[in-house]
Design a protein around this nucleic acid. Structure first.
Lengths: 214, 214
DNA sequence: TAACTTAATGACCGACAAGTCATTAAGTTA
DNA sequence: TAACTTAATGACTTGTCGGTCATTAAGTTA
């Protein structure tokens, strides 16, 4: 027999996006398991029950966050790659630039750390992210690498492993920022970090003409 | 009025190490928050109450795992660096080799992912790990880099940022293995990955004599 | 303005886990 | 072997949180 406080204004249209924004913020701050849906609802200015009016359950809420915020950026990058002409390293830089501006500099930057952190305990969410984001991202980098190798711009290397080496420092930058960064008194400059990474790659991927190989 | 099953054999000496082994395995598998101390105790062949006889609480149990398993390896690496003579890149390779054999190829390999995953929710544990492992590890790499730059073996770069770039792919390798690896049907070869990383570093860190800089 | 539809609420349920402590019995001492 | 010390147990307390649903009232229709 609940009576209590009066319902807030009825605004059916605005609720989903407000809830998604609140969910993103709290998921990034607390992680998936430790985020309380009651807190998500409160941050969006509604009650817990209202959240369940718009999202089936916690999993569905999380998938919706990814669906709305990250998958469109992957699709953008696929379009960039599709219409790209010119050298392959330029393509890699453009993909990174778009990823950095749409994900790296927004609240979505915290998602990769969340996924890595919770993958073992929520394998279905991890699979969803892998299928829709990671595998498509790896494919993009792989295409650029294969192109560059075919044209002689890059030297021949194991493509699948090189994809991981290319992506790892970028992921690690985001992961660090949303985990251990609080322990460091001196915070690093991401621009500087990315520039060094790109410079190393430019030099490292390039085909070597005269050098001896071991 | 609990009566129930008879106590197991009394073996005060063996309990702590058995509990630490069980705790490491479960922490790595489930994470810190999701590991139930009752499961840790059960895996060590004792009851939950017994665990509290030997460890103050969950935090103390975790710190003991780090203290026993990882901090000694850092100390070893500090000794290796202290008695090293010769070129700085060799030192980097030796430090990596020892780290890989003592941590990367053991159950402790799962700890970096755990730390990154739980740092936000357990800042005291993160600080403990940062003080005792990360800052000391970064200092080791930093010393090697500064040495190499002073002797002209390496080109001059921002040391603190370069430390991160050097370490990131190694950390990412471990993190990946204990998180998303389950989603990939094809698992990558860590030896190959590390070899590519080291090769890129060898080339990338080296002082460039004649090349133009942008 | 009466009747109706549905957005919104929050008390409640069930499951789960950290940490406590009264009780038991294994092993030791006299 | 009686008295004693302490390793070991697990029921219980306390608190948390995902998800449900009976109830309320905002807004709409006739």
């Amino acid at each position: 027999m609940p009576v209590l406080s009066p319902p807030r204004k009825r605004r059916k249209e605005a609720r989903p996006s407000e809830l998604l924004k609140a969910a993103l913020d709290l998921f990034v701050e607390k992680g998936f398991a430790s985020t309380r849906l009651e807190d998500v609802a409160a941050r969006a200015g509604v009650s817990k029950g209202t959240l369940y009016l718009y999202f089936e359950n916690k999993d569905a809420l999380f998938k919706a966050v990814i669906q709305e915020g990250i998958i469109p950026v992957i699709a953008e990058n696929e379009a960039i790659a599709a219409r790209h002409t010119g050298c392959s390293f330029d393509l890699l830089e453009r993909l990174l630039e778009n990823w950095w501006s749409k994900i790296g500099q927004t609240a979505y930057a915290g998602i990769p750390k969340l996924i890595v952190a919770e993958a073992r305990n929520f394998p279905e969410l991890a699979s969803f992210y892998y299928e829709n984001v990671i595998s498509r991202g790896r494919a993009l980098v792989g295409t650029a690498l294969r192109c560059g190798m075919a044209s002689g711009e890059f030297r021949s290397m194991d493509v699948e492993t090189t994809i991981d080496v290319v992506i790892a420092p970028i992921l690690m930058l985001l992961i660090w920022r949303f985990s251990m960064a609080c322990c460091q008194n001196v915070e690093s400059d991401p621009q500087c970090y990315l520039r060094i990474h790109v410079d190393l790659l430019r030099q490292g991927l390039r085909r070597i003409d005269r050098e001896s190989r071991v």
